[in-house]
Amino acid sequence: MAILVLDILTTAAILFAVSAGLLIILGVMKLINFAHGAFLTVGGYMAYLNGAAGLSPWLSIPLAAGVGFLGGLVIERVIVRPLYDRPLDAILATWGLGIVIGQLITLGFGRGVQFAPNPISGTTELFGVDYSAYRLAVAVIAVLLVVALSALLKLTRFGLNARAVIMNERLARGLGIDSTRVRALTFGLGAALACAAGALITPLISVDPNMGLPWLVNSFMLVMVAGVSFPSLLVASLILGGAQVVVSTYANPILGGMTIVVAAALVLRISPKGFSRA
């Protein structure tokens, strides 16, 4: 039972970390970044390069975030900005971008599996069971992330502007907020979060050109259900991630893999605003 609870908590934490970058872009830009999976992959390769350079494994996360931020700014300028008025085209363009990034990585590193060193290995005893230490660390990081992101939105100038754009972009522009700049920074931040998440989950999985793909649909569904607030994303991760773990444990991991998609689609069909009203 203790293991089940820990599985649920850590799974929710991972899902949250993986989806956070998507959520902020959706909130401010009303756009789903279909290159999200590719960004996760880039984060994984940053962790790999970081390890190959012999740096401390913990450095890989800020490194990936930095690369993601800069890359995000460039991509926003070149690909996303011309498509503000065509949201479906923006989906397609980011999807195409994901394909391009995947092919570039394949050309550069090959299709093979790479390894990044693990910052913490082995297990820790908690509630009377031995549990993977790194998964617990990820859970702690995810909680810190919720606090940091909420603080960013609530306490900083950027956060204020971003929230204004989320609520009513036209009004925000009328109040003198440079919404173009807010959007650019947001995309950078979203990309940074995605890359950092890629680096964060790398010690649990392996690095290969498709590593981001399996996370893609689940994180889409989570942010659709969560709406645009980080706490409700955490709630969605806990409930749906928990459902996934329970189904995987008691029924069948293959059904478990589809749990989030199916449950989220039904939730949205019955209550189109998802968990954001709660």
Binding site: I3, D7, T10, I14, L204, P214, S248, P253, G256, G257
Partner: peptide, 20 residues
């Protein structure tokens, strides 16, 4: 005897089952 989808990478639930 447990299976994960071919692109699955999170074996947590299966490993927990195995341990029990």
């Amino acid at each position: 005897e447990e299976y994960l989808p071919m692109d699955g990478s999170d074996w947590t639930a299966i490993i927990s089952q195995m341990r029990s």
